[in-house]
Amino acid sequence: MSAAPQKAKAGAEKIDVTVSAVVPLNELVTRFEFKAKDGRDLPTFSAGAHTVVQMNDQGRTRLNPYSIMSDPADTSHYAISVRRDDEGRGGSLFMHRNVKVGDEMTITFPVNLFSLDLRARKQVFIAGGIGITPFMAMIAQMERLGGQWELHYSVRTEALGTYVQELSYKHPGKVHVYYDDQSQAIALEDLLDGQPLGTNVYVCGPKGMIDWVHATASAAGWPDANVHSEEFTKPQPGKPFQVRLCKSDKVIDVGEHESLLEAIERSGVEAPFLCRGGACGQCETDVVSFDGDFIHRDHWLDDDQHANGSKIMPCVSRFVGKSLELDR
């Protein structure tokens, strides 16, 4: 049909916000809070959702996804916690160095790729480091719903235990903290073994931890559908390469420190996206022709698609070779 055709927008709907608080929590992590610029409540969200924060870094647009960690029942503000990554591409450094209370920023509507299974009889949360953030919102939601949950939270040191004190104080008996520097580790096999039927497990943290939880649960006979994870892959730097965009009839250069998606956007071509981390599938792009090798880093395409070179996820994946033509 064509009742009133409107062009689909790239990314989720946007919200203009004002930074209402900047709270350093420890050496590496700072919390940022946003309120709607127009003074109204922000959109309701579900625990596990993220927002993409748009940063204007000296004329360069950075778009980084962060889990919303505030209580979903309180839409007067959103909170995110950002871990400074000195080796990264600069988004977290920009947040830490440049963002001040009163700044005006743009964020997207919440998008949830890591939602709670509301059928679960019990929720077990497993967090590593900054992976605690989605669970802050999930815990608030579970407390409100009166559901059963427990958290197993692995941190490097006491000093870097973001929200450890708050969580332990509010939920004694439900929160279990493990300190790497004291050689404490989650006894995962025992933990999984003791759960009632209908339990769901959620893991957010480094890739190694996510793989470990999936593999251990699978070996213990857990159904895949009961084990949930969220991993945003960050685009990695790589050798510059050239791409021809067929539909737009443009040839663009992808720099060493930018993603293919960013290069497409920089050239003025609108491309769909949501998570910018290889998970949501929104930026999936057809390959018209190629002569070279793909460096696929997404969690979206299947192995066949990775192998045959028919598609690429430009938010995280790159290309090395003579030529690449995309249907964009």
Binding site: M1, A3, P43, F45, F109, V111, L274, Q282
Partner: peptide
């Protein structure tokens, strides 16, 4: 299905 899974808050869709 792919389209529907990606429908986001604030961006409803329709068809006939």
């Amino acid at each position: 299905l792919k389209f529907l899974l990606n429908i986001q808050q604030g961006a409803p869709a329709r068809r006939l």
